[in-house]
């Protein structure tokens, strides 16, 4: 599902590369924790995977697509196969929960009746069924993150990328979020969760752990 070959990323005006010769392979359906302290390069690695950045060196392949060779106009097609979850939720604050979740389907031109049915399904999965009409900015942090997850799950993605998904949540909501990510709801998708919080690993066991330290990747046991 994911192949990174000798990937380096250097940002302008920064002496230290954000990533140095990173090699990583993640198979379909795998659950992977990407750990490391703040500034280790986790977010950069995720940005490379969803095509917000191009590597300075090396090759990034997602779902068989070499992102270095992908024309920008084809990038939306790749992103429709991904589910993205961020620490800051990235919701449209004045829009309803329904509209936020439906967005990931509407951008792909999905029929309105299918959108309605699918949004209802995923809101049920994340236990927000009764809040479909509520504006997103009136929800608690935990609820907002579940809306973001519902939006990521709605198109039935092949790969879910979560960047510090529990960073703004209390332990109870963090556990609930992680259970959703490893549950049946992801429909066999590959899941890559970036976190700087080692306690998160103890919340949900069984995932593969890879560790980033100052831009270098090492596999943890």
């Amino acid at each position: 599902m994911i192949i990174l070959e000798r990937v380096s990323k250097v940002y302008p005006h920064r002496e230290e590369p954000a990533l140095k010769g990173v090699n990583l392979q993640v198979g379909p359906g795998e659950f992977v924790y990407l750990t490391g302290p703040s500034g280790a390069g986790k977010t950069t690695l995720l940005r490379l995977l969803y095509g917000a950045e191009l590597p300075s060196k090396g090759r990034v392949v997602v779902g068989g697509t070499d992102l270095g060779r992908l024309a920008p106009r084809h990038l939306p097609l790749l992103r429709r196969r991904l589910g993205l979850v961020f620490q800051d939720f990235r919701l449209m604050p004045r829009r309803s929960v329904y509209e936020n979740v439906a967005l990931s389907l509407e951008v792909a031109g999905t029929d309105r009746r299918i959108v309605e049915r699918r949004v209802e399904e995923v809101l049920e999965q994340v236990k927000l069924s009764g809040l479909a009409k509520v504006p997103a900015d009136t929800l608690s942090g935990g609820e907002q993150q579940r809306v973001a997850l519902a939006r990521a799950l709605a198109p039935g993605p092949d790969l879910i990328l979560a960047d510090e998904p529990t960073g703004n949540l209390d332990p109870e909501n963090a556990l609930a979020m992680m259970r959703l990510l490893v549950g049946d709801y992801v429909g066999g998708a590959t899941v890559l969760v970036a976190t700087h919080d080692p306690t998160l690993l103890s919340l949900v066991r069984g995932g593969r752990v890879v560790h980033l330290e100052r831009g270098r990747l090492e596999e943890a046991s």
Binding site: Y50, A52, R73, P76, L77, L78, R79, R80, L82, L84, R90, L91, M92, L103, S104, V107, A108, R151, P155
Partner: peptide, 15 residues
Amino acid sequence: RELELMALVGAGGGY
């Protein structure tokens, strides 16, 4: 911000 969000979930230029 809204446009960037749309781009993240796969909205094309036309959308």
